[in-house]
Design a protein around this nucleic acid. Structure first.
Lengths: 200, 200
DNA sequence: CAATAATGGGTGAGCCATCATTCACATTGT
DNA sequence: ACAATGTGAATGATGGCTCACCCATTATTG
């Protein structure tokens, strides 16, 4: 066969499209198979069951995103935690806008998943959030951010703010303000909110 | 008949418990019926179908919450938009903590629902978010908040921050910091972030 | 004021459509 | 030839929803 187009990847990509269109529960294995141009049975050569597709999808895609952001932070933000927050926010919103289908799946299904698969920990997702708390800790170490802000609370607040905004776009794709403008608005509020008084 | 305990309410309450335990898709009508101590068929005397239970649940419960907050804002926050944000945040987090089962349903199912029932608008939910943008506009009118902050962006950011924090508690109920502490942390950041420079 | 009829909320067994998963078989590459 | 890989029809379980049937209450009748 000529370079057997990686079936695993093909199935994941198909699953993103189908899950985004119909949601996990309404999506049929047959739909994914059709979209990926493979037989139903083939899917079970690469995944244990329907859930396994979803989880693999999460971990692999978030894994890629983490690599992307980390690279971007190094190349774009220098050592300034304020710029790091800005870069993170812009990247997150841009990603959600560029990859609508993936965004939709993450938005809609990621939360539920912890629920039924309690045994399964979404390790990559935690890692993604920890980038934010890492930035906060660094900023506090440099005396730029107020020390009394709890990094563990801030990371959730910041991520939640971004993600709730992104959901608006997923549901009604025509946004009134540009991505850059929105990202800056949100980051402005958070930076003003966390910055030390003597650091204007 | 002896005071026919309002079946509609009984079913909604049962549904909250069952949905929170198993999630909407895994919940069986039979489960809800059993929990509500009625027959399967009885549910269809009060609701059109399974989705209808979920939607009624949303609208009714969020409706109650809106009334609660509005009352609390009037009695506790005076005219100060900073206190209003604080009261809103504390109330939201306290609610999510007090009513775990409802919180779980709102957290997990509310987002999905827009998706499949695109025709259906979650009107009450929008109304809830608009309380926040109302506070922002008022604060800007009073010159206390910076005028360049977009209320429509702020409301999502603030709500998202609160809700993402609440989700942590839903998933792992033992929170490291108290509700008050967390609510204040988040509100501090947002108030510092939105307040006008001359208003310390 | 019985006796009878009408009403309508409540019931739950069973129908039937829907998929996830399997597996006997086919195809491909070495 | 034979692994390895891929196929898709068949299976079996599941669970939303229906509907023929109860029965308590209220209205009507003689």
């Amino acid at each position: 066969m000529i370079r057997t187009a990686d079936k695993h990847a093909k199935i994941i990509e198909a699953a993103i499209r189908v899950f985004s269109r119909k949601g996990f529960f309404h999506a049929r294995i047959a739909d994914i198979a059709k979209e990926a141009q493979v037989a139903d049975g083939t899917i079970y050569l690469y995944f244990n069951n329907k859930y396994d597709i979803l989880i693999s999808l999460f971990e692999e895609e978030i894994g890629k995103i983490i690599l992307e952001v980390k690279l971007l932070l190094e190349s774009e933000a220098g050592d300034d935690p304020r710029r790091m927050l800005r870069v993170f926010a812009l990247h997150h919103l841009q990603l959600m806008d560029d990859r609508r289908e993936l965004a939709e799946v993450l938005q809609m299904e990621l939360r539920q998943s912890n629920k039924f698969m309690r045994e399964y920990r979404l390790t990559k997702f935690s890692e993604y959030l920890d980038i934010i708390s890492g930035i906060v800790k660094q900023g506090q170490g440099q005396g730029i951010f107020r020390p009394e802000v709890l990094p563990g609370v801030f990371k959730r607040a910041f991520f939640g703010a971004l993600d709730e905004t992104a959901r608006l776009w997923v549901l009604s794709p025509d946004h009134p303000y540009s991505i850059e403008e929105t990202a800056n608005q949100i980051t402005d509020v958070f930076i003003e909110g966390i910055i030390a008084a003597d650091q204007t």
